[in-house]
Design a protein around this nucleic acid. Structure first.
Length: 189
DNA sequence: AGCACGATGCTCT
DNA sequence: GAGCATCGTGCTT
């Protein structure tokens, strides 16, 4: 029996959720077909204090979903062409989320390969492009199959199979936020 | 295998 | 008007 991760899973400290998302199965229904990948990399963005987080300057139109209920998708556009997928965490009113950065394809490989023109899915924008994730999914529930996007229990990675590292791409973010090891990644085999 | 760079447009100051 | 939670290409080692 396949289990979809519940809102209670996401309503916990963001670092915990980020680590526990490694090894889970990200599922997307696209044009009636089921596509899926095992999450292999994720990063935590935690509140207004975290100067690497979009909520660092308070609530705006773009980041509003992060202030909402956990277990929802925060999808935003960046670099003029890329979509990023995050899972909102913690309690309602506290802005935090986990950026899903990479996956290993396990279902719908033919469709994904065509969408990606044979290239990989190890990258936050590559993953959203592979799964057809864009602004229409911003604010969608990750706990309701009707949304067409959710995360299943999968096979959680053991702590010994996870490595941590600084978050990627925060070039102008001040320390310590630039270097805190809030990136979780499946150990390379 | 690694690094530099240009693409490209939305969001917030 | 600047900056951006990136990607793919092309060039250098």
């Amino acid at each position: 029996m396949v289990k979809i991760l519940s809102q209670a899973f996401y309503a916990r400290p963001t670092l915990t959720v980020a680590r526990e998302l490694i090894g889970r199965r990200l599922v997307r229904i696209l044009d009636g077909l089921r596509l899926a990948g095992i999450i292999t990399e994720a990063e935590a963005y935690v509140g207004e204090e975290d100067l690497g987080c979009h909520a660092r300057s308070g609530k705006t139109k773009r980041n509003a979903v992060m202030y909402g209920r956990p277990g929802h998708a925060y999808v935003y556009f960046t670099y003029g062409m890329h979509w990023m997928l995050n899972a909102v965490t913690e309690r309602e009113g506290f802005p935090a989320a986990v950026l899903i950065r990479a996956m290993e394809v396990v279902e719908g490989a033919d469709v994904i390969s065509a969408r990606r023109k044979g290239r990989d899915t190890h990258g936050p924008a590559k993953l959203t492009q592979a799964l057809g994730i864009d602004a229409t999914l911003n604010g969608a529930s990750l706990c309701d199959p009707l949304s067409g996007l959710w995360i299943e229990e999968g096979t959680p990675a053991a702590d010994s199979d996870i490595i941590t590292a600084p978050r990627v791409g925060l070039y102008t973010v001040p320390e310590p936020w630039k270097s805190v090891p809030w990136r979780f990644q499946m150990r390379r085999r």
